[in-house]
Structures are given as C-alpha cells and as structure tokens.
Design a protein around this nucleic acid. Structure first.
Lengths: 235, 235
DNA sequence: GGGCGCGTTTGCGCTGGCGCAAATCGCTCC
DNA sequence: GGAGCGATTTGCGCCAGCGCAAACGCGCCC
C-alpha cells in the first residue's frame, strides 16, 4: 500500500524495530509501509477489532488503554515517536487487546500482517528486534505489577512519571517536559489509583515546586526529588 | 552440549516454542539441547545472573519470582511442563530479571544463546513462536495490572487460581488439581495480597467446599463458583 | 516416637486512599 | 465576550485489608 505523504526511510532506520538492518532491507520496509496523518483524538483501533496491522509512531503521542470485562479502565502505556504498537496481536489471537487514541496530531506508519511476516522471514533481525522490544515491555509491566502489589499510591505515581520522562521526556531549561498532554485521569489510570488521589498528589508536588503543569503538559523540575520519593524505602 | 539423560525429541515437538517446525529442524533443536534433572528446591538461576540460557521445562514445576530494589517480593509466574522460561533476558540486557526455583523434582532443558540465535536465524518460525509466547504473557501480565488496579483481593485470588488451573490444571474425579505445590505465601505473592488475607480467603473457600487443599496441593472442586467470584461485577 | 521448624490460621486495631459530592477553573467554540 | 463543558481541586466519611502478634498444625528428621 502506498501513500501520498512523504515517507522518510531514514526515520524508519532509527526505529528500534528496524535496527541493524542492511540498507536494502530498509528500502523494502519503506516500500510496504503505509503512512497516515492523524488529527488529535483519532481512534487508531479499538479493543477487539480483527483487522490487525503492525503500527509505529513517527510523530506525536498515542494512549493505549484497556477496558476490563467489568467496566474498569487502565492505561496500558503511552506511545511516543519511534515506538511500535498494536503489533503483538498479529502473533496472538488476531484481535487488538486494547484501544489506541492519538493525544495530539500525529504521524503514524503501519504494515499489513502479510507484509510484516514476509519481512521477518526475509530478515530475521526484525523478529529479534520485536522480541527485544516486547521483552523490555514485559519487564516494565512486571515492574508495575510489583509496584501495585507492594507500594503506596504516591510512590507509584512517582515511578509512572519517571517512566514517562525516560520514554518521552524532552529536556528544557525548566526541567524535563513530557511531550504529550496528560490528564490527571491518565496519570491515575497508569499508576493504578483514582483521579482524586492522583490529583491530590500532583497538586502537592506542584506546591512544593517538584513539577509544573500547564494545560495538561507536565514538566518535572526536580527529578532528583521525584526519584527520592520513588525509591526511598522509608515505609 | 550433550547429556547422559534420555532426550525425547517428540517431547520437544509438542512445546509451543517449537511448533510448526519441519522434522529436520526438530533434530537440530534436540542436538543442541542440554537436559538436566533437578531436585526439588533447586535454584535454576538468580535475579541478576549474567550467564543467560534459554530454558524450558519438560516435567515438574518452577516458581519465577522477583525481588524489588526495596525488599518486596512478587511471584511473576509459575512454569509447568512444556513452557519456556528465562529466555527473554537473551534479547534484552543479558541478565535474568528474576529467580527461578523448582517446586518439585523436575526435568529441564536449555540452550545457549549462540545455539538459540543460530536456530532462530535458520528457522524464523522459532522467533515467531517466541513472539507469540511472550505476547500472550504480556497480555496476561497486563490483565494482572488491571486486576490489581481495580479489583478486590478476593477476586484477584480467584483469577489467579483460574489462571493456574488453565495453565497447570489436571482433571481428577474430585475436580481440577494443580500440579505443583503452592504455599499460601505463593498464592498471596501472585495475587498481590498478603499471606494473611490469602489464607483467610482460601480457608473460607475450603469451608464452603469450593476447593480442597492437602499438603500444599490445591484442587478446585467447584470451578463455576470460583469463576462467579472472579467475574461477578457485584461491587 | 518425640522434637523441631516451616507453614497456616486467626484475632484485633489502624489507616491509606476510595467513593461520593460539590465547587471552581480554564479552554474552546460560537 | 459569553456560554458551555471537560478537567481539576477539595472536603468528608468509611471500610477493606494490612500489620502485628500469638497460637496451632503437621510433616520430617533424628
């Protein structure tokens, strides 16, 4: 599938998904890619959808969230530039396990199942890259499980912020700014607490000067302090 | 590497890791495998160890548990016959992210990093199998995150039991028996609660006849009732 | 067969943070 | 500039389940 949008092969080359591929492989990858520009608040796919593709983000931000069989919602993760998403479903039961929504205007690229599998068989390094990416996510999610089981809400929020800063942080004179807008509810859903508790914690931190938030954009001003809260075993 | 123990290639062929491989590939896999018999309570590897191999279990049971930078411990998962474990570390940072200990006398098989990678490059289907396995685990762990965030302890224990039954359950006249011994503490650590709460819940279920436990062996006598507790949205 | 030690049960008090509700803030769109 | 609406803040009451502690059961080893 082709697209009228400018496809930038050298951007693909920097994605973890296609690391260590020979240049000729990069071209094949680019040739089968389908690029789309997506306005803010676009639903890229819904939990349960069967027409599964492999996605990656070039610009912008995406929220991946999951709805339980009861009504409970959690945020699985946020996707920043260069990250793949929605790809695991190609290998498991063929249905997206979560919803994906753009948080800002974004640029997305995707491949069909057939194209990706053909690429993988031809260049096994792609499969190895996917295993590494999913493996790292598995460890991250397991860390979250450990946190949820053993830590208080405040420390979990601190950890969530640090993960976000590492993943999508952008250094400014003011501190580390997180690229995409985050509602208090999003923070709550990713750190396993309620909107109310998350709001109280963030407000307290703002008053203490640890972070600033303006218009759903967060800036961490004193990472060391947040880290102290996250790691300090005083409890 | 070879071994004096009887290696059973047709056993390997039934493992999810080597599904859909041509017979000749199965032979190569068997040729590079290293088989070990492990007594109960053997530490197969420790969190942080650097000499990483790809493991799979032929017989027995293994507990995979993780220690936080604080002292908190959680059980990541239990491994039953046919399942691979400790393999993700080969692709990420080269260190085991958790401990692995046998719960009973077990039979284990493993491959070196070099051998596994050679196999994967030669037979990409192995890589695809690994992605599917890890992908399924990722979804399982994400389900646990959702449960921990939104559900009460009793429902989490119920879900943990059902997962164990699905994974390592064995049907008897008395109900579904779980193959390996589980201490109350194990149940607590995998469902994100404390020993005390887990004990109270299980005792109550035993009194109600939903399950039986003898000598750390659990038998689910009324799966439908446990399922009702796990799924019932009455709260 | 007796003692030892791990695993389990159970009572009791306390508290983190959830649930509910209402007020306020601040964008966005008209 | 005003209206409307989603997001955020904040107060208050309450309870699930954690933390502590002690007793008990039971398999295993000597």
């Amino acid at each position: 599938m082709t697209s009228d949008l400018p496809l930038v092969p050298q951007v693909l080359a920097t994605m973890e998904l296609f690391l260590e591929l020979p240049p000729v492989a990069q071209e094949t990858v680019a040739a089968t890619a389908h690029v789309r520009r997506l306005p803010k608040d676009t639903r890229i796919f819904n939990q349960g959808d069967a027409d599964v593709r492999a996605h990656a983000l070039i610009e912008g931000g995406v929220r991946i969230s999951q709805l339980g069989s009861d009504g409970a919602q959690v945020v699985v993760r946020f996707i920043g530039p260069g990250e793949m998403f929605g790809t695991v479903a190609l290998f498991t039961n063929g249905r997206y396990p979560a919803d994906a929504v753009t948080l800002v205007d974004s640029l997305e690229v995707s491949w069909s199942r057939a194209d990706l599998f053909a690429l993988m068989v031809r260049y096994p390094q792609i499969a190895i890259n996917i295993i590494r990416i999913i493996g790292n996510r598995l460890q991250e999610v397991q860390d979250r499980v450990r946190e949820l089981s053993t830590q208080r809400a405040e420390r979990r929020v601190a950890h969530a912020l640090l993960r976000l800063a590492r993943q999508a942080g952008h250094n400014t004179t003011d501190g580390t700014a997180i690229e995409f807008p985050l509602r208090r509810k999003d923070l709550a859903d990713i750190s396993g607490t309620t909107l109310h508790t998350a709001s109280r914690i963030l407000t307290a931190w703002e008053k203490a000067g640890l972070l600033a938030s303006r218009n759903q954009r967060l800036t961490i001003r004193r990472p060391a302090e947040i880290l102290r809260i996250a790691e300090d075993a005083t409890d």
